[in-house]
């Protein structure tokens, strides 16, 4: 098993955190992981992306140009990285910010209204957690429970309100994928 996941969006949308939480879960499950952000001017509100690898074997290159799963939080990210998604790969995009949508043969494409769901749980910032829930369900690269436990470990004492919101967002994302698969 080797999953090369690219998460991209505007700076501040939380693309890097999606990648971080998924590789942390991978690490907890004993897998080999790398997390490589684009850094520098991107940190100042431009576009941000992260390359995450989760694998059974040690990870050689943390850089890749062939994407197994793309998480695109906005249209420019979708346009830029869609061509790099491999056959049999998956794309998860934010349908609230990608009017044009996406199409490519041989890959599974899921549009999900992340902003709407984020607002639904009380904070648009939680939309990346919705994406994370969907990503985990879609790829199965880590267990949902591992991510939940990790979030609990981080937030239970520090910020229980945020934890509850994030867990709810995670679940919405997961359910969305389950339901759209039916």
């Amino acid at each position: 098993m080797k999953q090369r996941i690219l998460c991209a969006g505007f700076g501040g949308q939380g693309a890097l955190l999606i990648g971080k939480l998924v590789v942390t879960a991978g690490m907890i499950e004993g897998k080999h992981v790398t997390w490589l952000p684009s850094y520098g001017p991107e940190m100042r509100g431009g576009t941000a992306n992260v390359m995450a690898v989760i694998s059974d074997k040690p990870v050689g290159s943390p850089i890749f140009t062939r994407i197994d799963t793309l998480v695109a939080l906005n249209q420019p990210s979708l346009d830029k990285f869609l061509p790099q998604v491999v056959e049999g790969g998956m794309v998860l995009f934010n349908s609230d910010l990608c009017d044009k949508g996406a199409s490519k043969n041989g890959i599974c494409i899921v549009g999900i209204p992340l902003n709407k769901f984020g607002e639904q749980v009380g904070d648009i910032k939680a939309s990346n957690m919705v994406a994370l829930g969907a990503l985990i369900e879609l790829t199965g690269c880590v267990e949902n429970k591992t991510v939940q436990d990790d979030l609990k470990h981080m937030l239970e004492k520090k910020n229980p309100t945020l934890l509850a919101r994030n867990l709810e967002a995670l679940e919405i994302g997961r359910k969305f994928v389950v339901e759209s698969a039916q």
């Binding site: 971080k20 590789v23 690490m27 080999h32 992981v33 790398t34 997390w35 490589l36 952000p37 850094y39 990870v59 943390p62 850089i63």
Partner: peptide, 10 residues
């Protein structure tokens, strides 16, 4: 280098 500095690994 910048990549090893910025990259996260276990």
């Amino acid at each position: 280098d910048g990549l090893l500095g910025q990259m996260m690994e276990p």
